[in-house]
Simulated assay, not measured.
Amino acid sequence: MSDEWFLQTGHGVRFEWGPEGARRVGAHVACLVVVDVLSFTTAVTVAVEAGTAVHPYAWRDATAAAYARRVGARLAVGRREVTERSPWSLSPAALRRAPFTPRLVLPSPNGSAIAAAAGEAATVVAASLRNASAVGAWLARHGYGVRDRPVAVVAAGERWPDGTLRPALEDLLGAGAVVAALRERAPAVTPSPEARTAAAAFTGTPDPAAAVAACASGRELRGGGFPEDVAIATELDAASVVPVLSGGAFSSRPIADRN
């Protein structure tokens, strides 16, 4: 069986799930949009809004600390490990309260791992419900979404205890919001059936914020004592930043910039 069928070839806008989906489509598109609503890409929008360059990294371990030292960045800690000396974490709420740092290494086994693995093979953008419209406008402005300039929107998903992918509603809605925004601004784009269905999931959800708050991942975060993270993640189109990966870090690009 040919991998071609799974690359959604012939379509300018593609949709996939998780690290493996990103690996398969990433080498065959001009742009890869990573969506990890709870919470990597939401955290990226918060940090980038403050002027921080965010370095994605797959794991929070000794190698992450060494990498942070090498690039001259602070290392984000776990949500429950925030202290006065280490106030930066994957929690968007903690990042809003933390003092400014020019560079931050933000490990995450889902969205951050996908972004770090994608590297510079394609233009990599971080999207969430907070900045979906801005990302859609930026993609349209740069001509992404047509057959000779394809874009793949990848929902990061979560992981089951055995490490396998758990598709996550919040990331489906975030990815769908990006596709819907791109289609609205560039009607000539050619979405795959997968991308069209992701967009329909978002546009067909009467209250996406309520859906994210009530879904499994939202309940997990709220039950774990982080309701503010869910609230920030569901600030629909509150952010105008478009975080683009360059030189190993995400920083904001204006919608009208040129590649």
Rank of each mutant, 00 (worst) to 15 (best):
F250V: 07
F15V: 11
R96I: 03
V37A: 10
A62C: 08
D207T: 03
E49G: 08
G145A: 09
A175N: 06
V189H: 01
G143L: 07
E16K: 03
V29A: 14
H142L: 14
A201C: 13
A66I: 03
T45Q: 11
V77Y: 00
G143R: 05
W88Y: 04
E235F: 04
L106K: 02
A68G: 13
G119R: 12
R149E: 06
G26N: 10
A73G: 08
A200P: 07
A134C: 03
P19A: 10
V48K: 02
I232P: 08
A76N: 00
R85W: 02
S192G: 11
A239I: 03
A201Y: 12
E220D: 11
A195E: 13
G218W: 05
A53N: 08
D171A: 08
T9A: 12
G21Y: 05
V212N: 09
R253C: 09
V71W: 05
A50R: 15
A127E: 07
L173R: 07
G248M: 10
R149L: 07
R166N: 14
P161T: 03
A117L: 02
V230T: 09
G224P: 04
D237M: 01
A65G: 13
T83H: 05
E170A: 15
L245K: 08
P167I: 05
E16D: 14
R97C: 07
F202M: 11
A50P: 01
G18M: 01
S133C: 00
G223E: 02
P107N: 10
S240N: 01
S89G: 06
A50G: 11
V25D: 14
L245A: 12
G111C: 10
A238L: 06
T205R: 09
A216Y: 12
R185Q: 10
R149H: 08
L173A: 12
T101L: 05
A93V: 01
R196W: 09
S252I: 00
V33F: 04
P187S: 11
S39K: 01
D207Y: 07
P99E: 08
A53M: 05
A181F: 06
L32N: 15
Q8A: 11
T164F: 06
